[in-house]
Write a protein that binds this DNA or RNA. Structure first.
Lengths: 135, 135
DNA sequence: ATACTATTACGAAGGCGTTCGTAGCTCAAC
DNA sequence: GTTGAGCTACGAACGCCTTCGTAATAGTAT
């Protein structure tokens, strides 16, 4: 078998390093390895080839896309921030809240009491949803 | 140095296997290895000694406590479900939502539109919090 | 053309999580 | 006392994640 004809489904939760790289790509758009490496800010600095290797692996996993037409390959995120967040939240809900998103919500609200501004925003969202909510 | 004088702080997110075991202990209370193993329901069954090993490791990590006074040791959860959920949510917020719990909330609300009953519960919580909310 | 530099590719090491086989111990039954 | 069943302890294997060193390659400047 050759490489892989179709893109693998994205894993439920990217690893730490993968997330850090995705964050850079989401924020700055398509980047060379050097650019990604440069905009990495860490307690312990990370090697250039480490970033390269990660990007290569992430390409295989379908997390990023590579444009190899230039000498310095240009990488871009192949998964959106929103969809990644969705997957990660879904994973957390499944693993820690028995599949109940509501429980996650209540938990988050209870542990981190909202500021008035936050309360306002949540209320606004609830009002909007009231209409379009699917039972 | 001997074993470890004080309990290590619980890790931000228990692993999958650890969570599955904790779930059993939370649900059924203190259990022997055999009991934990018995109440495991999985697509692929898991070996008895695997559960044992996991419980031993979790003891070292401070996730469970062991009562070795009986021949069959009795294990119990050393971390509460609520605190574990708190840690896991905090970890997710940090890793995927740039530290903003609000963003997680809005995201969860947006992706999984609430049922009227859910909306009601959330509103109620918001009302309660309004008073006690720390700015 | 040659030497230097930037980049990619490859491989390997170390750590952690998960799994299980095997050995050794303890208690009870005979 | 000997045997057997059940339990714990230990260690090893395997895979994945992260890290980096080194080799190979392509482009640039002299």
């Amino acid at each position: 078998m050759p490489k892989r004809p179709f893109t693998r489904p994205a894993p439920p939760r990217p690893t730490n390093a993968e997330l850090e790289i995705l964050r850079v790509l989401w924020r700055r758009g398509p980047c060379t390895v050097r650019a990604v490496h440069a905009s990495f800010e860490r307690a312990d600095p990370i090697g250039y080839t480490t970033v390269l290797k990660l990007l290569q692996i992430m390409t295989e996993k379908g997390l990023v896309r590579r444009d190899a037409s230039l000498r310095s390959h240009v990488y871009s995120a192949a998964v959106s921030e929103a969809s990644t967040q969705r997957r990660m939240v879904a994973d957390l809900v499944k693993r820690a809240f028995g599949g109940s998103t509501l429980r996650l919500l209540l938990h988050a609200l209870a542990t981190r009491p909202a500021t008035p501004r936050e309360v306002y925003q949540i209320r606004r969202l609830l009002n909007h949803q009231k209409n379009g909510a699917r039972a």
